[in-house]
Design a protein around this nucleic acid. Structure first.
Length: 937
RNA sequence: GCCUGAGUGGCGGAAUAGGUAGACGCACAGGACUUAAAAUCCUGCGAGAAUUAACCCUCGUGUCGGUUCAAGUCCGACCUUAGGCACCA
């Protein structure tokens, strides 16, 4: 066929030498910034997954250039981080050198794939010229009070003497040695990211991120609007505050819980409970976070002996401590409402604490002039046969459980027992449990009245099947039937009975909306109204107020590692923490001989006394440098700004450059980064904006995320599974163009897709077919008229596809165009060139080569075709004819043909006539240019 | 447990606004070319019943219900699966 290796090398060299794809700052053209996450240059080289997202963004960049934009499409390296450090420890190679090697490999691989990066803007986060500005920005955080030191707990492996990330401590054991992970207190640098919680939510309105990306961030920030409520302690002048999102359920609070670490615990615990409380606290301290959260399905806790006073009704309720309440969230204390909170329900059940229902679920639809009454629904279960007792009313109401109205002087339970006996004759039964009350609206056919009932549900167990005579009213005609679960699910349709059954099957808290009961001034209100009213009450009585809480906490910015940006701070005994002068930046990472952390978990930098010991910038006295380094996220939080002005040695980027490029128009990366990385980056930018250093508060416009390339076994690629595909092998066996086309064609770009070498071969065939078309060239000018409709359709379709990341359909449309070219006798050069231009974004080498062979100017400097819509107007169309919803034939119509004529055509269609035999046509509808549908009886 | 996706032939996947489900590709089968193979080209290809054949008919987009003249698409409940988060009061 052709020597793809030679052709690809030729064009790659051409692009490199001519700097074809370099962006120009300040150009007259409209700017367009295409960004793809820069890789971590690992030792294993480029992954076929990288190829997928880089090709996608490359295609976008190439199209935008042809559409006349000044496109910025940069690439660089996110090279600080743990893997390089691990590698250094194992092999005694300086991470700097290992990273340099890896970058070389990565770059070579990227060049071999023909990506149109502007290589003049390349940098690595590990370059001192780059991290100088990362450090400088940290100093701005510090100077604006946004960076502070605080004690936090870290995962600590006592054997490796090392701090572990949550990832490395998964399952509560050290990933490397299997030792149980401990919690160790450590002073760390923090950034006040929680101050930006609200702005980070609001800012999303000024972005075009995919909805699921926005949602992911909103969930991470975890805003909840609630109330703080103050509880006084019985017989003491002490009080504590709880945070709740459900202050409307305050009347249902039957106990309170303090986190074991809560400062009040020691103060309020009574003598009798001291020992128990102390033991429990000790127990909790031993557990790490993971155990306290993950493994704690079964709730534990102890009573302190103290009571709190519920501010709404003055009731005394016990105070417990339990580790299901976290000291770090809210106020570290909660009011517990077991009827309406799952966790509280579990705890109350275990410790036999009363459960008070204050909300009734509402079923049915309320209407005016309803009659009120109280009633029951009783479910009788026969354990032996695993069946439930139902009453089949047939046409008079379908299948129901036993139900009835409570008489005067009768309890709900008595009523249930009586109704079962009267209606079904069973009397030897035992109560299993009473179910939550339900507020139900319905219409009674036999009485022609609307009712609003408060229904109490009961679950009974059948003891033996002894049956007495039923006592029935005259109008009661039904069958008593024992049925299984499946029948109930399919046949019991009444909302009240269905809900009652649900409660019986899954006992637990009712957490949804409903109508308040047992709540004095809230009775009859729904959740939202009740929350407002309760807030009013709390504020009027000075025992609470509205309060917003966020899950998102401050950013822990220290890492006890060597391979990261040194934090530019020194500690002086006299002056405390001091920033180093900006003129001393970059604070260069020194060379060390050993990369292992110290025995007490400090970064290896702590061992370099020459470097650590310094002078205080304020008083000139003895001082020590911070030996922790920054997290990997630091360098990647602003790299997209640096690309706008990568060689600036006066600023991290000039305002002029940033104002020209405005923003990242299109950012692509992995789904796993859409929450954290993007939030850190947005926080960073918002901070810089607030101190006047960047032109806008949000600098990233569209964010999409790509799916993974899985192994052919549908599993993640990994060495151990032996399913890894090396892009180098594919490039040398099939060529970069084929690999690029295949990765775009393999499936929906946002979804994971498995590798298939067979499909890859199919794409090779496609490229070969495109190549062979050159043998069909004729000497005609312009487009072949027979092809014009499909050509314009294709231009329109692929342009649309590329704008919405529909790469797989983009390729398929070009395959269809190629098929059409193959079907005609010969094609013109213009026909051929059109196909080459349209295919160029994904297969740039072969298309550029074939285009050159025909003697045309470079595709990279031509403009993207625009469809001539006038060529798309069809005058005839085949549409379907439906009879009663089923397609029974097709007819040809003229565009704009009048309805009557179309109707006649449809009705005279042979097969349609056959299907209308013996039926009367009720209606014939013509849906313009789409379908004719006939309804007949 | 919660959040977010996804579920369509043997496989990857199409179906822009509810309007002829299965585009495009792979695999497979038959045929042409060839001494032969590869490559290439042609034909077929959701399941089923029936038929010389064509038309045609029934079923069919995870399951069960609903809305509609019409549902892969909208609504409700559920199942399976992938990813994220972990008792967030």
């Amino acid at each position: 066929m052709y020597n793809f290796t030679k052709v690809e090398k030729k064009w790659q060299k051409y692009w490199e030498e001519n700097k074809t794809f370099n962006a120009v700052n300040g150009s007259e053209k409209e700017p367009y910034y295409v960004l793809v996450e820069f890789p971590y240059p690992s030792g294993s080289g480029l992954h076929v997954g990288h190829v997928r997202s880089y090709t996608a963004q490359d295609a976008l960049a190439r199209v935008k250039r042809m559409q006349g934009y000044n496109v910025l499409f940069p690439m660089g390296w996110d090279a600080f981080g743990a893997p390089a450090e691990q590698y250094a420890i194992a092999n005694h190679i300086h991470p700097k050198d290992a990273v340099k090697e890896n970058i070389k490999t990565f770059k070579k691989q990227m060049l071999s794939l023909g990506f149109s990066f502007d290589w003049d803007r390349e940098f690595s986060t590990t370059d001192p010229e780059y991290y100088k500005w990362t450090q400088w920005q940290f100093l701005q955080f510090y100077k604006h009070g946004m960076a502070y030191k605080a004690k936090t707990f870290v995962n600590w492996c006592p054997k490796c003497l090392s701090v572990l990330s949550n990832e490395d401590a998964a399952g509560g054991v050290c990933e490397r040695c299997g030792t149980k992970v401990m919690q160790k207190e450590k002073e760390q640098w923090m950034l006040r990211m929680s101050d930006y919680a609200e702005d980070l939510i609001k800012g999303l309105d000024d972005t075009n991120f995919a909805d699921r990306v926005k949602l992911g961030q909103i969930n991470w920030i975890g805003k909840s609007i609630g109330a703080e409520v103050v509880f006084k302690i019985d017989g003491s002048d002490k009080e504590f505050t709880v945070f709740t999102t459900r202050c409307d359920t305050l009347f249902g609070a039957t106990y309170c819980v303090l986190a074991p670490e809560h400062e009040l615990v020691d103060v309020i615990t009574t003598k009798e409970h001291k020992e128990e409380v102390e033991n429990y606290k000790q127990e909790c301290m031993l557990k790490n976070d993971l155990e306290r959260t993950e493994l704690n399905k079964d709730k534990t806790g102890v009573f302190t002996g103290a009571y709190a006073i519920n501010p709404v009704n003055g009731k005394k309720i016990p105070i417990y401590i339990s580790d299901y309440v976290l000291v770090s969230y809210g106020t570290g204390a909660i009011m517990a409402v077991p009827a309406h909170d799952e966790r509280d329900y579990d705890f109350a059940k275990k410790y036999n604490i009363p459960i008070i229902q204050v909300l009734e679920e509402e079923t049915g639809k309320p209407v005016e002039n309803e009659f009120k009454k109280d009633s029951i629904v009783a479910i009788l279960y026969d354990e032996k046969n695993d069946k439930y007792l139902t009453i089949n009313w047939h046409n008079m109401g379908g299948r129901l459980f036993v139900g009835g109205t409570i008489k005067e002087d009768e309890t709900a339970l008595d009523c249930a027992i009586r109704e079962i006996k009267e209606e079904t004759g069973y009397s030897n039964i035992e109560l299993v449990m009473e179910l939550p009350k339900i507020n139900h609206h319905y219409y009674a056919y036999n009485k022609d009245k609307y009712f609003n009932i408060e229904s109490t549900g009961f679950l009974f167990k059948l003891l033996d099947d002894k049956r007495e005579c039923q006592i029935l009213d005259d109008d009661e005609e039904f069958d008593v039937e024992w049925v299984d679960e499946k029948t109930i699910n399919n046949e019991v349709s009444d909302a009240l009975h269905k809900k009652t059954y649900e409660y019986a099957k899954k006992p637990g808290a009712m957490v949804g909306d409903g109508i308040h009961i047992n709540s004095e001034f809230l009775n009859g209100l729904h959740k939202e109204e009740a929350i407002d009213k309760m807030l009013e009450f709390l504020e009027d009585n000075k025992c609470g107020r509205k309060k917003v809480n966020y899950k998102m906490r401050d950013w822990i910015f220290s890492r006890q590692r060597f391979w990261g940006e040194p934090i530019p701070m020194v500690y002086c005994e006299k002056c405390g923490w001091q920033p180093i002068p900006e003129s001393e930046l970059p604070l260069v990472l020194p060379d060390v001989a050993e990369y292992e952390p110290t025995d007490n978990g400090e970064s290896p930098l702590a061992k370099i006394t020459d470097w650590v010991n310094t002078t205080c910038p304020k008083c000139g006295g003895k001082a020590r440098r911070e030996t922790d380094t920054m997290p990997n996220w630091a360098g990647s939080s602003w790299y997209f700004l640096r690309y706008m002005d990568p060689h600036n040695d006066k600023e991290f980027a000039s305002m002029e450059a940033m104002k020209y490029w405005k923003r990242v128009d299109w950012y692509n990366g992995g789904m796993e980064h859409t929450a954290r990385h993007l939030l850190y980056a947005r926080f960073w930018v918002q901070f810089l904006y607030n101190i006047g250093l960047v032109p806008s508060k949000e600098m990233i416009w569209t964010r999409v995320s790509h799916g993974m390339v899985l192994g052919s076994d549908n599993q993640k690629m990994s060495k151990s599974k032996g399913n890894v595909i090396n892009p180098d092998d594919i490039v040398s066996d099939y060529g970069a163009d084929v690999l690029r086309v295949y990765e775009m064609f393999m499936g929906d770009y946002t979804q994971d897709a498995p590798w298939s070498t067979d499909s890859l071969k199919g794409c090779k065939r496609f490229i070969d077919r495109v190549y062979r078309l050159k043998n069909k060239l004729n000497n005609n000018e312009g487009y072949t008229s027979k092809l014009e409709v499909i050509q314009n359709k294709t231009i329109k379709g692929v342009t649309y596809d590329l704008e919405r990341m529909g790469y797989n359909t983009y390729i398929s449309k070009l395959m269809i165009l190629t098929n059409a070219y193959e079907e005609v006798d010969s094609i013109s050069k213009d026909d051929y060139r059109l196909l080459l231009i349209l295919l160029n974004p994904v297969a740039p080498h072969i298309t550029e080569e074939l285009n050159e062979e025909m003697g045309y100017d470079l595709i990279s400097s031509c403009s993207w075709p625009v469809s001539d819509d006038s060529k798309l107007v069809e005058n005839e169309k085949e549409i379907a004819v439906q009879v009663n919803g089923k397609v029974r034939g097709t007819i040809n119509i003229k565009i704009g043909e009048d309805e009557d004529s179309i109707k006649n055509k449809a009705l005279s269609c042979e097969n349609v006539k056959r299907h209308l035999e013996g039926l009367t046509v009720v209606k014939v509808m013509v849906i313009k240019n789409k379908i004719v549908t006939i309804v007949a009886k």
